[in-house]
Design a protein around this nucleic acid. Structure first.
Length: 570
RNA sequence: UGGGGCGUGGUGCAAUGGCAGCACAUCAGCCUUUGGAGCUGAGUAUCUUGGUUCGAAUCCAGGCGCCCCAGCCA
């Protein structure tokens, strides 16, 4: 697999890392990519991963993949494999795969050191008691003492002897106490203005089998007691994370300072917010469980698997991430920007084909019965090396219903009675009459005549036609199913809503079962990407079978006519 | 309001004391055997007030707004 090239990027993280190298704080660069194996990756994670990857790469450094598996109640091996597969698909390469659980023994030793230093203690308070004694964030309410904030209250167990703490911690580890009965806490400052410094929990008792360490452990480290220590143990120089961890940095640094261990540096950046995308793992899970989408790889989802199935390439995603840049600003990137990157990428790589999604039968009255001509068609005007192919033409063809109007609206250039259009790569045809359903009066067939002198689409007399439309020969047409997607949500910020039913776009999936595509598409394999001329980019779905392809619409082409029609109607 | 973070066109990102620029989006035009692609142009921005300076998006001071934190989640 090709690794994405380091693009020419510049951002504040790179500047900080360069500075660290210049000042000698570090003499190499190592970053880590820290997924928690409790769900599938989405495009927001990818942004974070790409930052880790490119930052290391920019300085000739290395990237570790470290699974943050500190909570056995939530994590599973299944997700480990899925995450690795997704990261590999993106082309992100790591030099070493590790797990937070690899360091449980050493981390425990470090905890014992802290206890011996008098900097950690076992607390017997209940979760409720601890919560109540943590103090408050805001100024005390009216009527109460006029103090800046309510400090926390020290635990009655805070001043146990080192010996007692050591004994209790050992017994917590050995499983002598029930889940939730005790924790190990760092002894810092219960009146610290940063609430994370008010004696944070380091270990809690969880009696659940871990996906890697089984039943060996009865205590598991909290994020704050695991992540930074693991960074240090691995010699990670730069621990890049999202802004919400900024407030954790003092604690991150406190632990390493007290332990006098290698000091990794945490740098925060803002995470990606994408309009019309659901980024919350919990809510995506809900969509799957409620059956609103067909699974974690539903093409309407911005999970990596969803995007992949939809037909989006890693390159498009990478370009998108680079385009949107890195800052600490809270920001909302428009979905249109992602779509633009997808079009830009697919325009260069996708071969063109003709496909009729909403078929209308056209009979070319003066074309010889039974005759078939194989027309030359260009595979990709953006890429000469893609070559050409032959497309069969015959007396009866299908065109798009939208490409015919009995009474044309203003500025409509396509087929209508008396008008001449070009059939792409074939002939100029003129509409002469229509056949109707005797009951409904609906047009069932359009009759045309063709000009035999215009084979290939050029008129010898130089006359111009304003429109070129696509078509498929009826006798050669391959029937297919096509799935059209729109935004899954009716709101641009779906994460703000808890009642998912109320924000689902009922038209987010439209299944077309009566489509016809040219014969070269019959054997399309899952993942094959095409541009259906004038319609959009499409990708053969996993559900495709030989001779029976199914296509997902990745993204539409820009539709200028739709815009004109809309504006003239208004 | 205790602590922390962040404020540049509609959106995202640049400009690191010296002509506020790029991409997406929007609008207009050119071109076109995809009403695709491409090309050209237009409109719209430095949160605010004051200060320093020949000169401020940038430095200083005050104000305003938005976001994050009171899990034995990560």
């Amino acid at each position: 697999m090709d690794a994405p090239d380091s693009p020419k990027l510049a951002n504040f993280i790179l500047e900080e890392v360069a500075k660290d190298l210049r000042t000698g704080r570090f003499n190499y660069v190592r970053t880590r990519l820290p997924p928690e194996p409790n769900g599938y990756l989405h495009i927001g994670h990818v942004k974070a991963f790409l930052i880790d990857y490119f930052t290391a790469k920019e300085f000739g450094g290395e990237l570790y993949l470290r699974f943050d598996d500190t909570n056995p109640a939530k994590e599973e091996t299944e997700f480990v494999e899925a995450i690795k597969e997704d990261i590999q698909w993106m082309g992100i390469q790591w030099v070493k795969e590790t797990y937070a659980s690899d360091y449980f023994d050493r981390l425990y030793e470090w905890a014992v050191r802290l206890v011996k230093m008098g900097l950690a203690y076992v607390d017997d308070q209940s979760p409720e008691e601890m919560s109540a004694s943590r103090g408050t964030l805001h100024k005390a309410k009216w009527g109460e003492a006029d103090m800046a904030l309510k400090p926390g209250i020290e635990s009655p167990y805070r001043n146990r002897s080192v010996e007692e703490n050591l004994d209790l911690l050992e017994r917590m580890k050995n499983g002598e106490f029930p889940e939730g009965s005790r924790v190990l806490r760092a002894k810092i400052d219960m009146s610290h203005p940063n609430i994370l410094m008010r004696d944070p929990v380091m270990y809690r008792i969880i009696r659940t089998a871990h996906h890697r360490t089984g039943n060996k452990w009865c205590i598991y480290p909290m994020y704050d007691w695991s992540h930074g220590q693991n960074d240090s143990m691995e010699g990670i120089t730069h621990s890049l994370c999202s802004n919400e961890y900024t407030i954790h940095r003092p604690l991150y640094e406190w632990f390493l300072e007290q332990l006098d261990e290698f000091r990794s540096r945490q740098i925060e950046f803002s995470r990606l917010n994408l309009t019309y995308a659901m980024m919350s793992k919990r809510k995506v899970r809900k969509l799957v469980e409620m059956g609103i989408v067909r699974g974690w790889d539903d093409p309407r989802l911005t999970t990596l698997r969803g995007l992949r199935r939809r037909g989006v390439t890693p390159e498009a995603i990478i370009n998108f991430v680079i385009q949107t840049g890195e800052t600490k600003n809270d920001s909302w990137v428009e979905m249109a920007q992602l779509e633009a990157c997808i079009r830009d990428d697919l325009n260069k790589r996708a071969q063109r084909r003709m496909a009729v999604l909403h078929p209308l039968k056209v009979v070319i009255d003066n074309y010889p019965e039974g005759q078939v001509e194989w027309m030359d068609a260009i595979n990709n005007p953006e890429d000469e090396s893609a070559g050409t192919r032959k497309v069969p033409f015959s007396k009866v063809i299908y065109i798009e219903q939208d490409d015919f109007r009995e009474t044309p609206p203003p500025k409509y250039f396509r087929l209508y009675p008396g008008n001449e259009v070009r059939l792409r790569y074939a002939y100029l045809i003129t509409c002469t009459s229509v056949t109707r359903d005797p009951l409904t009066g609906a047009v069932t067939e359009v009759h045309c005549t063709y000009d035999p002198a215009t084979r290939g689409g050029d008129a010898p007399d130089g006359r111009k036609v304003k429109s070129t439309i696509h078509w498929v020969s009826a006798q050669h047409a391959v029937p297919t199913e096509v799935r059209l997607y729109e935004q899954l949500f009716t709101t641009d910020k779906p994460d703000d809503f808890e009642d998912l039913d109320s924000i689902i776009n009922p038209h987010s999936l439209e299944v077309l079962t009566n489509c016809f595509v040219e014969p070269s598409l019959a054997e399309a394999k899952p993942g094959d990407k095409f541009q259906f001329e004038r319609t959009g980019y499409f990708c053969a779905d996993l559900d495709s079978a030989p001779g029976k392809p199914v296509f997902n619409r990745t993204v539409t082409l820009k539709d200028t006519w739709a815009k004109i029609e809309k504006s003239t109607k208004l």
